[in-house]
């Protein structure tokens, strides 16, 4: 298994390299630069800045320098937040985003799973219909609608929860962001679980289990659910990567100092290193979670082998 994981990590290197290369040149060929302010800087100052940030070197040179520093785990200094390095920015913001994402993910898995199983067991009954209607709602309404609407109701009208802010991650501040993040995931997990659970309950081997007088629990949990969870697992891989690396919308609306905002901010301010850093972090998360998904798959399904 260790060999498998190493192999997978190694095979991810070309992808990562490709992502870095494309992003790097895409940003650089774009018009505008990090120091194009409304008031143009003095030529001398500009020259100095360019020198400090290696912008005076040729593009291939800069590219190689960047690759080298990334290999050493250094994403370089930020162009916009002048006093910070990208690593410092991420060290502060990533844990916040991850904390939010992880909570939302857990919530989605538990609530969505339970709803999905319940709906599958009560297929075509009112319970099923209401769960599915709610799920469609959850999948359809975009988070940039949900977030302000929840704030409007619970923050402005009822005044139960703060309208925004993080304040070091107090519980009340985290409630709405977590719910908004989790809602669509709950819906998707519920739908997937219901679908695969219904299929599993109809399968021949579950019929065998019923014909042999096994208990309801054994049939549902041991024989149906284990197989039915597989599609959910493969969905959750990329979803987890996206959740843990923060959401621009939610962090903007609720004013949360996470990593999600940095990409758009960086792009708008031509903060080259910030944009690159975010892309690399997200890509790494995607790669890691894909590997985790495969491992979980193998754990659940003996037919999957690491070779």
């Amino acid at each position: 298994m260790l060999r498998y994981v190493t192999g997978r990590l190694l095979s991810a290197i070309p992808t990562l390299f490709l992502i870095i290369t494309i992003s790097f040149f895409l940003i650089r060929v774009a018009p505008g630069g990090p120091f194009d302010l409304e008031r143009p800087l003095e030529a001398k100052v500009m020259e100095n800045l360019n020198k400090i940030y290696n912008l005076d070197k040729s593009l291939p040179e800069q590219y190689l320098l960047y690759l080298k520093s990334v290999l050493h785990g250094d994403f370089g200094p930020s162009f916009f937040f002048r006093d910070f390095s990208i690593n410092e920015l991420f060290a502060k913001s990533l844990p916040i985003s991850m904390q939010l994402g992880l909570t939302a993910l857990t919530l989605a898995l538990i609530v969505g799973g339970i709803l999905g199983i319940t709906a599958a067991l009560r297929q075509n009954h009112s319970v099923d219909y209401s769960v599915m209607a709610a799920a469609t709602l959850g999948v359809t309404i975009p988070n940039f609608v949900v977030a302000p609407c929840l704030t409007l109701v619970f923050g402005v009208w009822l005044g139960w929860l703060p309208v925004g802010g993080w304040e070091g991650g107090k519980f009340v501040n985290a409630v709405l962001p977590v719910i908004t993040l989790a809602l669509p995931q709950v819906a998707v997990v519920a739908r997937l679980t219901r679908g695969s659970m219904i299929e599993a309950l109809r399968s021949n081997h579950v019929r065998t289990a019923r014909a042999y007088g096994l208990s309801g629990y054994t049939i549902i949990v041991v024989h149906a659910l284990r197989g039915a969870i597989l599609p959910v697992v493969s969905y959750l891989g990329p979803a987890a990567a996206a959740l843990l690396t923060g959401s621009v919308v939610i962090e903007t609306i609720f004013g949360i100092p996470g990593i999600g905002r940095y990409f758009v901010q960086g792009a708008l301010n031509r903060d080259y290193t910030l944009v690159m850093g975010t892309v690399v972090v997200v890509a790494c998360f995607v790669i890691i979670f894909n590997i985790i998904v495969d491992l979980v798959y193998a754990l659940l399904d003996p037919r999957v082998r690491f070779d």
């Binding site: 021949n204 081997h205 019929r207 007088g213 208990s215 024989h223 284990r226 197989g227 399904d301 037919r303």
Partner: peptide
Amino acid sequence: PRKINKIRGAKITMIFQEPMTSLDPLYT
């Protein structure tokens, strides 16, 4: 189910047409 399960699989057992899918693929 609780009552009929005393008979199903003990007193009356079944085998099916589809040998490829009648066993759970995930267990020994």
